[in-house]
Design a protein around this nucleic acid. Structure first.
Lengths: 272, 272
DNA sequence: GGGTATTTGTCCGTATGTATT
DNA sequence: AAATACATACGGACAAATACC
């Protein structure tokens, strides 16, 4: 068997030190020059090893300071399906999807635009390509840290039928879904969530304060909501960083979970 | 404003060519030497630009051949919640979670082990640390390509109560859940799914045939199933590559989706 | 604020190895 | 076997960010 390249050997050695706890979370690694001497390799080779650990999300570099083992992140929990009993079709205030606790959600004033539906938007809302839709975009924070970017798309027909407040660039306190139900009698009775993962674009990387080199992916969720007649009411596209979020779906009456800080990932199994 | 480093400028230029369709999916980029001349930069700088595009999942390199724009992948759709009407608690045969069509699922013979529960496993199954659990591990394929790695953990108490076939290293055609219901009368009435994303370990990267540098993440899902008394029956941990899978959750009566190949991601919105 | 030392980031040139055709 | 193209590794120079005095 071929021996691993030098930079992989070095990365492997550092990885073991990190996983064994020898290098604790948040502590600084030896500098590149020290590692260069320790492993008797060139600085560039050491840097290649570090790049590998960065790609695996184990360390981060801070120019002028050094290289550090990343801190553990306690993930936010996103409930896809509300607890049974809380009833469907609320979901206007996203605070309900956040685990209770000391966490304080905050959201920006929506930016409202009228656009032409294309691609996924048209297809999910079952509209012709280039139909008009209203787009409402918000940035959301928890405890001051960027949490998600969300854009909801509504068919323009809702506005034409009288739900004009959808066009207002202001929060709709009772929620758009409640508003549409009150004005038009259209009730959201079901939805489909699609959860995908991709690399963030430059804007998203900037907002979430993650590196813009694609090494931290984002969840992109598509929620298409339907009324009783099966007609799509809206499409909500939400983007979350994968490094601090997880989704939970409850099916049936699930017993409440006693809070455990949820240690590390499971020990994994090898395919023979 | 500071100008971007050369390698980012080059990456940006190539990115635009790819996204504009000038460089179609599957086509070869100019070689490093050609790019070196075109951009009047060193080969190492060109390589840094390509590394950025690799991290973003836009291109791949093949030694001896060249650098290519990655092909579009048509994702598999994983249904988290079965269509209403299909009843809960089947889910033994995972084929049901795959979209119908020409796709042929296949799974390996389970590897069965008795282990001590630790961390998440103990906590999800509400067992003491170091209690015994039965682990059943399988590799699953669709159309011959690696699809997921799955390990289910069962409390040893199920075996002690008489469900001895859980220990057999062979498929249980009717499904373990059905078997447990028939033998012990314990019925799976609910479950909780947790969906997270992380980088694959070496074994997973090898099985899924993705690069082992962490640039393609995996979904790791935890499904904890409960019986009528709220007692955990099993924990199933499944790992899927994020580059070819997506999750769909239906809540309420969702109208069937007319099949559209689901073009590109939504056009994204900028945080002011 | 300024100056200096430390540390990582960028960019270059070169040589050699390995995979593929 | 030869040619091509990417992978690894080295060494060097300077820039940029940070911390400290």
């Amino acid at each position: 068997m071929a021996t691993d390249p030098r930079y992989r050997q070095i990365a492997e050695d550092l990885r073991e030190q990190i996983e064994s706890g020898e290098l604790a979370h948040g502590t600084q690694l030896p500098t590149e020059l020290e590692l260069r001497e320790r492993y008797d390799a060139s600085r560039n080779t050491v840097r290649d090893a570090i790049k590998l650990l960065i790609a695996r999300g184990m360390v981060e570099t801070r120019p002028g300071q050094g290289t550090f083992v990343v801190e553990q992140i306690i993930p936010y929990v996103i409930m896809v399906k509300p607890e049974t009993g809380s009833g469907l079709g609320e979901g206007a205030n996203y605070a309900s999807e956040i685990e209770a606790g000391s966490r304080k959600p905050k959201e920006s004033v929506p930016r409202v635009e009228v656009k032409l539906a294309t691609g996924v938007i048209a297809s999910e809302l079952q509209l012709q390509d280039d139909s008009e839709v209203v787009s409402r975009h918000q940035q959301r924070y928890i405890d001051g840290t960027p949490y998600s970017l969300q854009t909801s798309f509504y068919p323009m027909s809702l506005v034409e039928q009288g739900a004009v407040r959808i066009l207002q660039a202001a929060e709709i306190p009772e929620g758009v879904v409640t508003y549409v139900r009150e004005v038009l009698g259209k009730k959201q009775v079901s939805w489909r969530d699609k959860i995908t993962v991709r690399t963030p674009d430059a804007n998203e990387a900037n907002f979430f304060r993650v590196p813009d080199d694609g090494r931290i992916a984002v969840f992109e969720t598509f929620r298409t909501s339907f009324d009783e007649s099966g007609e799509p009411l809206r499409l909500t596209v939400t983007v979350y960083p994968t490094d601090r979020n997880q989704f939970v779906v409850n099916v049936g009456e699930v017993p409440p979970k006693q809070q455990a800080p949820d240690g590390q990932a499971s020990d994994r199994k090898q395919p023979e």
